[in-house]
Design a protein around this nucleic acid. Sequence first.
DNA 1: GTTGAGCGTT
Length: 141
Amino acid sequence: MAFSSSFRRLFAGANSLSSSPSSCVRHCSTLTSPRLFVSGLSRLTTNEKLQDAFASFGELVDARVITDRETGRSKGFGFVTYATIEDAEKAKKGMNAKFLDGWVIFVDPARPREPRRPQQETPQSYSGSGYTTNKTIGWCK
DNA sequence: GTTGAGCGTT
């Protein structure tokens, strides 16, 4: 059978074509911070509601709805902080585009707030020989 | 009562 050889070549070509140099994207959507930004909240949603809605995904360290100081009402978004990043990831995937108080809420990784003044210790852990220990977060299973 | 796409307080 002379067909098998041409088939083999076609398959080999297709296989080599499937390798793209810019396709270095890993299926790893791990967050870099256990802090989540929740938007789309109802103006009636309060901290307890937010906490109650997100508590079932992991250990919730903090959950607060941002309220305007002048009016005392919710600004329509809030922040939730989990004990671990995995829980935050689970909550993000589990609560994103879901309903809360009749509104569709969106969960996204919170942006790192501006560098605060030198009050908190700077854990610049050195390895001993002048090299910084890179404690990169990103457990990819 | 207030219907918006928005990243905050010690």
